[in-house]
Write a protein that binds this DNA or RNA. Structure first.
Lengths: 201, 201, 201, 201
DNA sequence: AATGAATGAGGATTCATTCAT
DNA sequence: GATGAATGAATCCTCATTCAT
């Protein structure tokens, strides 16, 4: 276990400053001078720690993707044995994600708005990550179908991606409202009802 | 009613060429030379019909947004008087949207991937459009609640945005699969079940 | 036979301007702004005709190398059948080279001083060209040895490179004196005596 | 007479390291980091001993020029009283120069390839040094002419510079061949024949 | 009206040099 | 004395835009 040294700290500071600026202005509108100003350092300092502007952005975005994935991936898809357990699991995941979005809007903006904005190659990587996330969600659905507490007739892959879409929409919403905590609770309530019981009365 | 003259036709040709290139490469990776090559005309020609690169992109994206809105807005939110009618309405809307995505991927890419990529101001306009679309969907939910065939306890605004998210996820999917017509039918089936009856068995 | 078009002319003008500046200031001290100023055009104009600064310099130097090679290569090594014919041949070659140096000092400076200055790869190419030139001169020596009018005991390759050195020294001298025509005649006289009869009295 | 202290030693080490790197990569392709790596010291250390990069290079080159001059200047131009003595003198000088080139290729590369590469001012100084060397060689010729063992009709200044050129060509050759000792002997033999007896049979 | 050669503002990047530790 | 992290001036290069033909 090595102690983080001064260089690692500096690296993290630059990454944090770049993340803030890119999240605020967008990748293409951000220039090196903006990042330098945000950190209070000279341009050259970045180039000691990162290869170029693309490299900084990719690392900021990758870090954001890891943070989002950690919030989602903590719950194994096979553990829920009943509808109530699964419902509790979904509730926990939703809260964790929304709380992360609320607590770290920079991370959320990098993930939702900048991950696909850097270039085509990164956009494809972002969509592949969403596909992976959909497959991961599909594993929960399949678990419930196997155990008999979720409808067998729905296509798990479709539902996985559809729930992705719901989650993205909710997270994007949290970034845009003035009282995100209240919005979060409204979302979880209504979406859980939609998800488990449908809209038909 | 004035007949479209030659200038309008040329304008449309340029807009179509720019739309194809921007949809393929992305706004920031597209340069004027790319569009000129695609159209087989000189750079200067654009500047006769459009103010600048930003202007072309905005008009291409706005046109795509109008096309998408037309596909969705044909169905007034108040007409459905029963669950079956609403279900049929939703099915029609979904088919119209997905068919548009399949038939005109350029329009879909401009809407889903480029509308928010141009700059911050356009990203905010895109999100406002999604909010409008959510409110529009919420009107359907409210109609169903008023008429008693949809659950009263869900928040229509939340459900409106959540269904937005499902639609976006589905449309993005249509752009990425090799047999989009089959994918469309899988989506409509599973998503209607989710939407009206929920996943609980 | 195609007529040179406007683009070729412009290209040649830029190459000529860059050649003058590089010959005067040296490759590394020359920047794009200097060349732009010399031509009276914007920076961007260069980049329409040349890939980058390295590309301009390489083409300027290669053109200079071709000009020098043309001045030397006009005389086939095998034609001289007697000492007098060879002496006349050497005299012609020397005059052609020195006259070129005097008439076009830019070409000479590019060849003698900048060909090896761009980078290591170009320096090696320059030295390879000098080796080729030495081998070419050696062919004259071998012709004279075969025909019996030049001493058999000298190594033609060594003499070829040694005469290279004499020529380079003379050409460099022409670039540095105020009356190069007089200097040229002094050189040809003394060097021919050295070359054919030696210094011993 | 002061003993060389630790500071002088360090200075010499830095100069030696810089000489090696500049000889290998060339002045303009060498950066301070390369020299620091070669020495195993920090950048700042140079700036304790040398004013800047230009200063290091100039001192490295000047030292090389002194080393070359020492190899040549040991023989006073007036001592030879006969052709045989002069021939022996020339042979000694040539061996000393070529042996230095072979033993210390770094010194030779700095002199032949980098002395003129630093900037215009240094290039002119290099050419002035070659002119001085030519005048020095001319003094030998004049001595031989005065004493009657060398031809009176050649121009000593021209011959001085021409022999310079031969020497430079030979030294450059020594740097490029795999068996420089054999090459040296071939050169001395053929060039002495050329120099004293000429090529005519 | 159409063209595309010319332009130069703008931005990314390098690297010699400094100076706090 | 030694260090090397920090700096920003300097420079290359791109590309949206203009305008003479």
């Amino acid at each position: 276990m090595t102690a983080p040294d001064a260089a690692d700290l500096k690296r993290d500071q630059i990454l944090a400053a770049a993340s803030r600026v890119i999240a605020e202005r967008g990748y293409h509108a951000t220039n090196i001078a903006d990042i330098a100003r945000e950190l209070g350092a000279g341009h050259g300092t970045f180039y000691r720690y990162f290869k170029n502007k693309h490299d900084i952005a990719v690392q900021a975005v990758d870090r954001a993707m890891r943070r989002i994935a950690e919030a989602l991936a903590d719950e194994p898809p096979e553990v829920a044995t009943s509808l109530d357990e699964y419902r509790a699991q979904v509730t926990r995941i939703a809260h964790r994600l929304f709380d992360l979005v609320i607590a770290e809007p920079v991370v959320a903006r990098l993930f939702f708005f900048e991950a696909a904005a850097i270039n085509r190659e990164r956009a494809e990587r972002f969509h592949a990550a969403l596909d992976d996330l959909g497959s991961f969600t599909a594993a929960y659905i399949r678990n419930g179908q196997r155990r008999g507490f979720l409808r067998a007739e729905v296509d798990p892959e479709v539902i996985g991606l559809a729930l992705n879409g719901v989650i993205l929409a909710g997270a994007a919403r949290m970034l845009r409202v003035s009282d995100p905590a209240a919005e979060r609770d409204r979302w979880v309530d209504s979406v859980l009802t939609l998800m488990f019981h449908g809209l038909a009365s």
